[in-house]
Design a protein around this nucleic acid. Structure first.
Length: 297
DNA sequence: CGTTGATCCTGGGCGC
DNA sequence: TGCGCCCAGGATCAAC
């Protein structure tokens, strides 16, 4: 589910509301789900979090990172993870799936069978972690281990380290389809299936091209396309295809602005030809077969 | 070493 | 209505 723009949108929606707050309690859902999601016994997790103050909120790739006093709580939302705030003074609304779009409409909701962790804050609000498919993970990382934890993660877009020369150098070493490389978090952090397809379309590059075969101007177009589509995703509050909601429980708007993802058979915005969908490494892959040629010559 | 495909889950949608 | 199958914003890991 959530790629860099979605995680960043959640972060921005939470940062003012939880920074400086104390975690007074943590409650858990079903045992089996908790064992998968948290990297330690729940009692230990609770002991380490109780009475801790949240001093800040960061993001690295698709990870959202809660700064505590001696630790970081690192959360990866997997495919269907949701982090939402619940204010007991406001009314709850049930999850409602829109019959036509399939999108969920909700503001805040009470915990249900997919709500696996609730963090209770001293101001009465709670932060709910809900995850239908249970692919998300939470880690408590000691401050000293922080760098190590993210050691293998790749270039971070929108930072000074995200530079064309580093990008091109990494590209040249890899002999696999460029789409597959874009999904590899040790290359560029934060890119997932939607934004990989969107960036390749913007750059006019066929998803099955071998990464090492990209010509210099293609490398540069892809480098720029990635930051373009990610920035656009953030500006529109993320892409809601199914489960993604922001910290307030609202869907994003970026699905209205996608060029190829989810548009199979519909006209390419550039040439008018039909958008093609193929399976590449078990992932749905959308592109325009006229604008994104399999061979550059 | 690098690359690949199976696997972990639940649920929605489709064909029969 | 129901069943079986395929698909879904992801990442890990055994096997080549």
């Amino acid at each position: 589910m959530p790629e860099l723009p979605e995680v960043e949108t959640i972060r921005r929606g939470l940062v003012r509301k939880i920074t400086g707050r104390l975690i007074v309690d943590v409650s858990f859902g079903s045992r089996d789900a908790i064992r998968r999601i948290i990297n330690m016994p729940p009692k230990k997790f609770l002991r380490k979090l109780k009475r801790r103050k949240i001093t800040g909120l960061r993001r690295r790739g698709k990870f959202i990172i809660f700064e505590l006093e001696s630790h970081f709580l690192v959360i990866h939302l997997g495919m269907t993870g949701q982090l939402t705030l619940r204010d007991p003074r406001k009314n709850d609304e049930p999850f409602v799936r829109h019959p036509a779009t399939g999108l969920q409409r909700t503001r805040q909701h009470p915990p249900d069978r997919h709500t696996h962790v609730a963090f209770f804050l001293e101001n009465g609000n709670s932060l709910l972690y809900r995850d239908t498919r249970q692919f998300g993970r939470m880690f408590l990382v000691r401050s000293a281990d922080y760098k190590d934890f993210f050691g293998k993660l790749g270039l971070e877009p929108f930072t000074p380290q995200y530079r064309l020369c580093a990008f091109a150098e990494r590209l040249k070493k890899r002999r696999l389809p460029i789409k597959a490389l874009l999904l590899d978090q040790s290359f560029v952090a934060g890119v997932g299936n939607i934004y990989a397809d969107e960036a390749l379309f913007e750059a006019g590059i066929h998803p099955a091209r071998l990464a090492c075969s990209l010509l210099p101007d293609e490398q540069e177009r892809l480098f720029k396309a990635l930051s373009l589509v990610l920035r656009r995703g953030i500006r529109y509050g993320g892409t809601s295809f199914r489960d993604y909601v922001n910290a307030q429980g609202e869907t994003g708007q970026n699905q209205e602005d996608l060029r190829v993802y989810g548009r199979e058979g519909q006209p390419c915005f550039r040439c008018g030809g039909p958008v093609t969908k193929i399976m590449l490494r078990q992932r749905g892959t959308h592109f325009c077969s006229a604008c994104q040629r399999p061979h550059p010559y």
